[in-house]
Nucleic acid binder design. Structure first.
Lengths: 208, 208, 208, 208
DNA sequence: AATGAATGAGACTTCATTCAT
DNA sequence: CATGAATGAAGTCTCATTCAT
């Protein structure tokens, strides 16, 4: 055995700033899922995070900042998904896009996730700060998805058509959020079967 | 002349009661759209309704009850739309369903409406009372839409398939809610064009 | 006895808005004298005023507003003193100005008053809002005192000389504030005797 | 030789201790001037002093102690001024006392200084500890100034008259504090001219 | 000895709800 | 019945002080 172990006791490892912030964000997300943005009080967040109220303010300027960080965080996750498509050959692209449906369904119908997303959307519908973050995130997503769509539709298609078609597909996926709250107990396998057909059609349909 | 009895007929108070309740609900809806459920204070609602705070408590037990009534109200509206399909011949049914898309788009992209709906959904995702109302409303909607779907798909289709397909179509329409907040400035005409194709396909697609 | 007394019980006479405000200001002044602006907590003010905390906010937007009102109030009192000089014939004016010294002494050496005034001054030295109120009050005082000084010095004296002499006299009176805190136990009669001489001299001294 | 002892001489820590204390007091004074006693937070003081919060507590028991030290410090400064009068011949004493007026004016009208002094006075008006320090300081000042006044008025004058006259002169000088906040933009040269006359008179006036 | 992260009491403020008028 | 003033619990945030490192 080695006795010259780490000089810092395991009870309180010096966590770095980002880890602490993430810890707070996670605790907040749990509270928000349970009680909404306004129902999640700073003291409940502190309790959930196992900290005192005061310490949270060392990592975030105020509650608004935590919420904004959660929103940004939540939206950032999405960005990572686009990377994987780089390696897919063009002719298999739609297949792969259709194949993520079950994953998306699983993701959205795990109620916690959607509750938070809806909270964010509702907040965005009236809080300009949150709306701005959402807008920025949308813009980034458009930037990432455009090249992907070009690989499907080619470069002759004009941008406005591209975006309109993308919106239609977006509706299907974002609609899952809403349906996951309204009808959480639906038969997912059946739904996936039909969704695959519709999404594939949405990608492949031609102009008349 | 009788000077002692109430000068107003007995029917009036009851009429009044419901009218006043609706008046309060309308005022509350306006406040909620602007500030969310939490942001809508009783005094702001009272001001918007042109009443005193106290009188509101004569019509609703508490704020929670108003919110629940709003949710129920909001969801009830939807029921009325199904009546009009009774007169449409079966062979034109899908055409008509597709034709309501522009109306739906207009309805959902007028931001106020969606804000309230998202508020309701977010609230439903965590407030069991609200969730129950939503569930009941969904059940009622299913009841109303099933005969409609039977007219399209016939009576041989099993109920679970019916519901699964209905969910897919529901996603498209409910997705508008989300998109209206995320991308309110999209080219609606283009979007409608492609939506019509996808929705038609969603109705007409066959098994395999 | 008379049974047709005021219909409102004496326990809670409907006080008008201004009376309530003044009541709060008085309570606050007592608290501020004891504990300073920052030491006077809203709850201590509420307790002193015999109200709940919340009700104070029906009469003042926030604590700052109360403080500003106190400052303005405190400074406004002073204005009333100038009215009485209107009736004094010019040749007796200085005599009368000198004769108010004992009153001023009594006023300032009653420690409470000075404590509040010093609090106001200290606050003004760094809170721009309070400084602005003080400046405005000073300007108003200058406006009121100038005609008085004209009656003493005539109209040939230029305004800057007038103001400079006024500042010197102001120092003597405002100095009482400070001395009342530093040396509250001084022999007031003796002090008044010498003060009268100095103040008279300050009014009567000629240019060289 | 002893190789094991602290490499620094024993005198250093003690020197250090006082120097560090003074360093903290200076930093605190700067903070207090800007934000008042309450507004000067321990962390802002630490930052201003270039130290960590914790180390301040090795030099002062708590914030109150720092404030008291500041007050004592501030009042002590004044003592040094009296030394210079020892060398002045009696017949020139009043001239010299009058000649310090411009210096006093400059000193008090440099806003920072007065803000701190007013803060101290306001605090003294309610904090008994601070009041005690102020009282002690006043007593010391009286001790120092009495011989000076004896050189002017002789030894026949009774002490109570001496103190009363001293209070009058004190008012003039302490009044500058207040006027510097109320009317900082006054024409100083004019004011000095008239002040010299009044102060001279205050020193020279005879009984009746 | 120094650091500065953590604590938690307490400040200001809001608002659902009640109740005397 | 209506009013809206009053209540007071609860929320966000600050900061003097402590203590593990």
């Amino acid at each position: 055995m080695n006795t010259s172990v780490s000089p810092k006791p395991a009870t309180k490892p010096r966590q770095n700033r980002e880890a602490r912030q993430q810890h707070i964000l996670d605790a907040t997300a749990r509270c928000v899922r349970q009680s909404g943005f306004h129902g999640a009080s700073m003291s409940s967040i502190a309790q959930e995070a196992g900290m005192s109220v005061g310490v949270i303010y060392r990592y975030f300027a105020n509650k608004e900042a935590i919420i904004e960080a959660i929103v940004a965080n939540d939206l950032a996750e999405m960005g990572e998904k686009f990377a994987e498509f780089d390696d897919i050959p063009d002719e298999n692209l739609i297949d792969h896009l259709v194949d993520i449906i079950p994953i998306a369904i699983e993701h959205k119908y795990n109620c916690g996730k959607s509750a938070l997303a809806l909270e964010v959307l509702a907040e965005a519908a009236r809080n300009p700060n949150v709306a701005a973050i959402l807008k920025k995130s949308e813009a980034k997503e458009r930037e990432m998805i455009t090249p992907l769509l070009r690989r499907i539709y080619g470069h002759d298609i004009d941008i406005s058509t591209l975006l309109a078609r993308n919106e239609v597909i977006g509706m299907i996926f974002d609609g899952m959020l809403v349906r996951s709250v309204c009808a959480p107990d639906v038969d997912r396998d059946q739904m996936i079967k039909w969704l695959r057909k519709v999404v594939r059609y949405a990608f492949e349909m031609k102009d008349d």
